[in-house]
């Protein structure tokens, strides 16, 4: 008890300290690096709270992919404005205090509301857990995400697609090559890639498969696959294209199509909309979601409408 309490208190203090450093730090680059550290410590906190699914999502998406996207954005900022390198791009500092106070009040209110919640046995979580057998999967997180609140998950896919389309709309249209093609590649990079990229595919498929009965699922698996794509485009193995190839267009909307198509099919078959007819359907939808999550994340990082293999 004693030592684990110490660890929890250290984690909580560390999180608050890191968050403070991220928003109030003197340099943008430092803030980005500390944001990644914040995500990793947050993942530890989720693990301590017995929420391994969230811990993995936080580490893969919150720290990993978001960190890569932020670093890429920083690089573009420096390219666009070299003399401002190292300067903090903070907008209006006088907004910081009111926003901080309002956020504090909001967090306090949510905490207070959480304390007023009725005890365990009447909450939605308990109902969902009791009905878990009907979902066909034994991991409660996957069951809730795809069966009990499938509508939310479907809309989340829509949000991801919209975010990608929005980023394309504001992009200049010119594809940027993120790889450093002008300098020779270090010998170790190829060796690293030949080991790590197959591993990301293996881990992604494992997470997808494990999502039915253990921590894992489409979002974590998609983020891991996207990380493989990030590595490949960072090292110039995948190069940007000017237009999105047809296959990649299909992949971008595949998750939405399969999920909503399955939901509509069940509606016309006389069941509830978005209800899934069995475990196989859950895995089918999860697989489609995984690749429809991975591709836009990788494309966002590459700042490109599409990707192709080098030399094609």
């Amino acid at each position: 008890m004693g030592i684990s309490l110490v660890i929890d208190v250290l984690l909580a203090l560390g999180l608050v300290g890191l968050a403070l450093q991220v928003v109030a730090g003197p340099s943008l680059f430092r803030s980005i690096v500390l944001f990644v550290v914040f995500g990793l410590v947050m993942a530890l906190a989720w693990a301590r709270l017995h929420a391994p699914d969230l811990a993995m999502a936080e580490a893969a998406i919150g720290a990993g992919i978001t960190g890569a996207l932020l670093l890429m954005t920083y690089r573009r900022l420096v390219e666009l404005n070299p003399e401002k390198r190292g300067e903090t791009y903070l907008g209006s500092r006088w907004l910081a205090a009111p926003v901080g106070v309002l956020t504090g009040v909001l967090v306090g209110l949510i905490g207070w509301a959480a304390l007023q919640l009725p005890p365990g046995d009447t909450t939605a979580g308990t109902l969902a857990r009791d009905a878990l057998d009907e979902t066909g999967v034994s991991n409660p997180v996957t069951g809730v995400l795809l069966v009990f609140r499938g509508y939310d998950t479907l809309l989340e896919m829509g949000v991801l697609l919209l975010a990608f389309l929005g980023a394309r709309a504001v992009a200049s249209g010119r594809a940027h090559s993120p790889g450093t093609s002008e300098v020779s590649e270090p010998a170790l990079v190829g060796a690293l890639l030949s080991l790590v990229v197959p591993l990301t595919i293996l881990v992604g498929i494992y997470l997808l498969r494990a999502g039915g009965h253990a921590p894992g699922g489409a979002f974590q698996a998609g983020a891991v696959l996207a990380a493989g794509g990030v590595l490949l485009s960072l090292t110039g193995r995948l190069v940007p294209t000017d237009h999105t190839p047809l296959v990649q267009r299909l992949v971008l909307v595949l998750g939405l199509l399969v999920f909503s198509g399955m939901g509509l099919f069940m509606l016309f078959a006389g069941s509830a909309m978005l209800s899934l007819p069995g475990t196989w359907a859950i895995y089918l939808v999860e697989t489609a979601l995984m690749i429809s999550i991975a591709l836009p994340l990788a494309l966002l990082f590459a700042q490109a409408p599409g990707l192709k293999g080098r030399g094609h």
Binding site: V189, L192, V196
Partner: peptide, 10 residues
């Protein structure tokens, strides 16, 4: 080990 080696080298 692999990640540390390569990132250190880079």
């Amino acid at each position: 080990l692999l990640a540390a080696t390569v990132s250190c080298h880079l």
